[in-house]
Amino acid sequence: MKLKNKIIGGAITTASALSVVLIIAIIIVILVVTIIGGKEKISWEFLTAFPRDGMMKGGIFPAIYGTALLVIIMSIAAVPFGTITAIYLSEYAHEKSWLAQTIRFAVRTLATVPSIIFGLFGLGFFVQFVGAGMDNWFLGGQLKWAQPNLLWGSLTMALLTLPVVIVSVEEAIRTVPRELREASLALGATKWQTIKKVVIPGSISGIMTGTILAVSRGAGEVAPILFTGAAYSLATLPTSVSDQFMNLGYHIYVMSTQSSNVDQTLPIQFATTLVLLMLTFTLNLAAVLIRSSLRRRVK
């Protein structure tokens, strides 16, 4: 019996060690392949210039810029909304009320919806319904908002990342000890004062982490912006939320599907992938660092 336990234990240890090695190996292989594939293209010019010669030369600056704008506007929409929802769920709603349960169910469902569905929803709701409505009401039918643009792309992406924000903020709020809330209430603070001065500061690391996870998710997704705002190629940078934008993920998609000259586009794809990987990697690293430094400060 003892021997059997020992064998099973040993097998599980080995299996978990192998899994860890495998995961690290996969990441390394992805990195190495992209670096080798894209190294001849990566340069200062690649990061800072516009594409030229049918996107075969030059850089991808508009895609980097567009991605940055996308995630910024997306965060402005998703983080406050998600935080408020999380506060409602954990502080105000009764755990078993139908409203809270409905919201929780909706959040869970939203998290599992395929991203292309968000794209279609964005097209149908934001572009064709809200946008067309705005044009009809405010511009007398003139076409401005009823087409894909930065705003609709960002809002569609915000819907996709909302569950990430809600879940991480709610978890962070739950880690604020009951004793601290009671201390605040016992001093005569109102519920809102307690939330504002004790609960939110106590869960700031969760809010930051949620934001960064949402941003890195949003930076990598393509499907939601496919019909709602991303452009194939633009000669100028977007200057208004009603402009279309270029995007790193979409750029990779375009490069890999819209050209017959694979030898020429492959290095650009790899280089763009590398930029995108570095971006998400940096953001995730930032999330980890912020979390640990805030945790240290609280202790």
Binding site: E179, E182, A183, L187, G188, R297, V298
Partner: peptide, 18 residues
């Protein structure tokens, strides 16, 4: 809220804010 301003409370486990 006013009542609790008039009646302070000290808890079993010290609970200073961060």
């Amino acid at each position: 809220v006013n009542l609790r301003k008039k009646i302070g409370m000290v808890f079993q486990k010290s609970n200073p804010f961060a």
